[in-house]
């Protein structure tokens, strides 16, 4: 709700937290039927709509995984992957992640069918990577526990391995970052890692992918993982939505025109959608160009030129964002800003929150408030300014992150070192 001066948002505390039961959105709500598109329901892995994950991570655990993903993304921009311990110590409290894991933790998943007859699998979708893979029988080396039955290629009539000599095999490196291998039977072997030991290795294969009952993709190239480790929770694998040619976006270019969209729900107890093809929906769209962030091709780079708090542009020199560069990533939970930008955001936001009592820091979030005495609060609006004049206002749930009503924090974190 916008308060009279339109530079502040009225946020109801209850709206920041998931409810016990799931509120599904009507899948047709945003579909414009006349155009070719395919819409999948998006659920948050750790909410009541989810796949019944064993246990949700605490905020601190989530932020540790989130920081590891951010470190890994930064390492790609710094030219080489550094061992985790050489990266700067993060503010996130160190919780030993079990078997590796930085697929990140803010996982949004969709249900797709694979093979003939189709078998349903819950896959994480990730704009920060390109390869789609799932765990496959016989799990020659290792499969982590997943909710859905592990995909069995032997039971599908449309499955085939890609041979080492196939051009599809040669193109793997740009999408996974690793040279493909070759098995004794001349089958193409892929390997992908997501940072700090989480990875998937297996056969690069072709299969029929069913997005919805009416949208079936034949000869879809994906990874059939025989050795998979990481805290992917109960998800069966991952859908890569990056810009490499092995991404589902490029593989379905003819059908969907290289357009996809998603909406991530306010809380983990409601659902969103992932749509392939040009879908209508949510009002007029404001566009900004995709740029190549610092020459790392597969990420979706954006040109942020500034930010506004409470309707006023905050003092950040334009060079701050042009030096750091910026990407948008569905797999990173908390937005990371260059240090100067974060400190300007923090001080402007604090000025607009003086009436509320402070609360202790929450891991990487250092600007927190005790709002347990309020049913609703009035907070300064926060907006991103992109080159070309596009200005995007954030929802209240995009400005505040609540671990509990007595610890509600500004949902941004500063990078440590401007060059990252």
């Amino acid at each position: 709700k916008i308060s009279p001066d339109s530079h502040h948002l009225t946020v109801e505390l209850a709206g920041l937290f998931p409810s016990a039961s799931c509120t599904r959105r009507s899948p047709q709500a945003h579909i414009s039927s006349q155009r070719e598109q395919s819409s999948l329901e998006v659920i948050h892995r750790h909410g009541p709509c989810g796949v019944g994950d064993s246990k949700s991570p605490t905020a601190a655990e989530m932020f540790v995984q989130d920081q590891a993903r951010v470190d890994f993304i930064n390492s790609k921009f710094s030219g080489k992957f550094k061992a985790m311990d050489s990266l700067r110590p993060s503010k996130a409290t160190k919780i030993p992640a079990k078997s590796g894991a930085t697929i990140g933790s803010g996982n949004y998943i969709v249900n797709v069918g694979l093979g003939t007859p189709k078998k349903y699998l819950s896959l994480i979708f990730d704009t920060g990577s390109d390869l789609t893979w799932t765990q496959c029988e016989p799990c020659a080396r290792y499969c982590y526990d997943q909710k859905d039955p592990v995909f069995a290629p032997s039971q599908s009539t449309t499955y085939s391995n890609i041979t080492c000599s196939s051009p599809d095999c040669a193109q793997l490196e740009s999408g996974t970052g690793n040279q493909p291998g070759c098995s004794a039977a001349k089958s193409c072997i892929y390997g992908i890692q997501y940072g700090d030991q989480s990875f998937s290795v297996g056969y690069f294969a072709k299969e029929t992918l069913t997005l919805t009952s009416t949208d079936v993709i034949d000869n879809f190239l994906f990874g059939c993982g025989q050795n998979n480790r990481g805290l992917f929770g109960s998800a069966a694998g991952l859908i890569g939505l990056g810009q490499d040619k092995i991404s589902i976006v490029k593989q379905t270019a003819q059908k969907y025109g290289q357009i996809f969209s998603y909406c991530l729900p306010k809380t983990s107890s409601s659902t969103g959608y992932l749509t392939f093809g040009s879908g209508g929906g949510g009002g007029a769209l404001k566009y900004t160009p995709i740029i190549e962030a610092h020459g790392v091709a597969n990420f979706y780079g954006l040109n942020i030129v500034g930010m506004k708090v409470g309707g006023t542009q905050i003092p950040i020199s334009p060079s701050v964002f042009s030096t750091s560069g910026a990407i948008i990533d569905s797999g990173t939970v908390i937005t990371r800003l260059p240090p100067d930008a974060y400190s300007a955001l923090k001080s402007a936001f604090q000025k607009g929150m003086v009436r509320y009592p402070k609360a202790p820091e929450l891991s990487i979030l250092d600007t927190c408030y005790d709002l347990s005495k309020y049913a609703a609060v009035s907070i300064p609006k926060v907006s991103f300014l992109f080159k070309g004049g596009t200005e995007i206002d954030l929802d209240g749930t995009g400005i505040l992150y609540g671990a509990s009503t007595d610890q509600v924090c500004l949902a941004f974190a500063g990078n440590r070192d401007p060059s990252t």
């Binding site: 945003h30 930064n74 969209s261």
Partner: peptide, 30 residues
Amino acid sequence: IAIIGNVQQKTLQVVYDVGGGKIGFGYNGC
């Protein structure tokens, strides 16, 4: 690198028009 995370994207309809080289944002997407 600055990274716009998924918390900040909540309720926005985020349209990746990769062929068109642009990203669109719409309010009240969900």
